[in-house]
Computed example of a mutant assay.
Amino acid sequence: MTRASAPEQSGHHTGKPMLSLVVPVLNEADAIREFVRSVDAAIEAAWNGASDTPDLEIIFVDDGSSDPTATVVRALRKNDARIKLISLSRNFGKEAALSAGLHAASGDAAIPMDVDLQDPPDMLRPMVEAWKNGAKVVNARRADRSADSWFKRTSSRVFYRMMNLISDQPIADDVGDFRLLDRDALEVLNDMTEHTRFNKGLFSWIGFETATVEYVRPDRNVGQTKWKPLKLLSLAFDGITSSTTLPLRVWTLIGALIAIGAIGYAGWLIFYTLVHGADVPGYASLMVAILLLGGLNLISLGLIGEYLGRVAVQVRGRPLYIIASTEGL
């Protein structure tokens, strides 16, 4: 049984906390220096050297970059001990890279962030204040997503609505990975062993007292998004299969309805034949029935295959990611 550590009696965090910023990166050499500068500027502007200014560690997780991303991080590390680097042996995907960073985080709270500054560092102070007021998880909700493309906004809206209709635990609308996770919540997440990771679903599933802050999502600062339509579709399938078994269970209902209809139709055919005799014509209706049932069978088999494939990945027991090297950890 997984248990969170005992919370503080007061339920509030006081004094000078330690924050772990977890930043997965893939071919982001041009964005790293600006990200660190922006974080420092936001911390200085928000706390202005106050005694409760949080200590930071910035954990960059290099997810198999082919550009000098790791070299840039190492150069910054020479003069900044807060910066740490995890280099994965190859590209494992953002969900795995984020999990690697969360496992390595040593702070009182961890905050996953994108290096492109679409997760604005000036939201750190509101998130920390909500955390100090007792929240174990602080979601950063995108109040305005006009910076995203029409396709991304629309597909995201459809996905969240569909997920919340069928998932066992609803996912907060317009909340990405950008959020604050208390150490108690982080320990529970790190104990989870599933290989097919859909972190947004896991963040919602663990529960805990949750607060929400809103922000306007800015334009991407540097580089281009690594999320292509096929990758987003794959992530959507991972989210559905890891959050609910309803797509499997619904076929029991569909099968029952078809069986009831088939029994009723068979009874009608017997009655019709007894009264009117055999009626040879019927090719069209026969083909419609065969094609309909064949199509439904293929869809149901495909869904079963999606779940079975993920079960096969899980039972192999391979690691979620492989760390080639770490620096500063």
Rank of each mutant, 00 (worst) to 15 (best):
T2E: 12
R3W: 07
A6Y: 10
A6Q: 14
P7F: 04
G11P: 03
G11C: 06
G11T: 05
H13L: 14
H13N: 11
G15C: 03
M18G: 09
L19C: 05
L19S: 00
S20E: 09
S20K: 04
L21S: 06
L21F: 08
V22C: 05
V23Q: 04
P24T: 04
P24K: 10
V25F: 00
L26I: 11
L26M: 12
L26E: 10
A29E: 15
D30S: 15
A31V: 02
A31W: 00
I32Y: 04
R33P: 02
V36I: 13
R37F: 13
R37I: 13
R37Q: 15
S38E: 14
S38I: 11
S38K: 13
S38C: 13
V39R: 08
A41D: 10
A41Y: 06
A41I: 02
I43S: 00
E44P: 03
A45E: 11
A45D: 11
A45I: 00
W47T: 02
N48E: 14
N48A: 15
G49Y: 11
A50I: 05
S51L: 12
D52E: 12
T53N: 08
P54I: 01
P54K: 03
P54D: 02
D55G: 12
L56G: 05
E57K: 06
E57H: 02
E57F: 01
I58A: 02
I58F: 02
I59H: 09
F60T: 08
F60D: 03
V61A: 01
D62G: 02
D62Y: 08
D63W: 10
D63K: 03
G64F: 05
G64P: 01
G64S: 04
S65V: 03
S66L: 12
S66W: 04
S66F: 06
D67C: 02
P68F: 00
P68R: 00
T69C: 07
T69A: 07
A70W: 04
V72C: 00
V72R: 01
V73F: 08
V73E: 09
V73H: 00
V73C: 05
V73W: 09
R74H: 07
R74D: 08
R74Q: 14
A75D: 15
A75Q: 09
R77I: 10
R77D: 07
R77C: 07
K78D: 11
N79L: 10
A81G: 13
A81L: 08
A81C: 06
L85A: 00
L85N: 00
L85M: 09
L85F: 04
S87M: 13
L88M: 08
R90K: 12
R90A: 13
R90N: 10
N91C: 15
N91M: 09
F92K: 04
F92E: 01
G93W: 12
K94L: 14
E95P: 05
A96L: 02
L98Q: 13
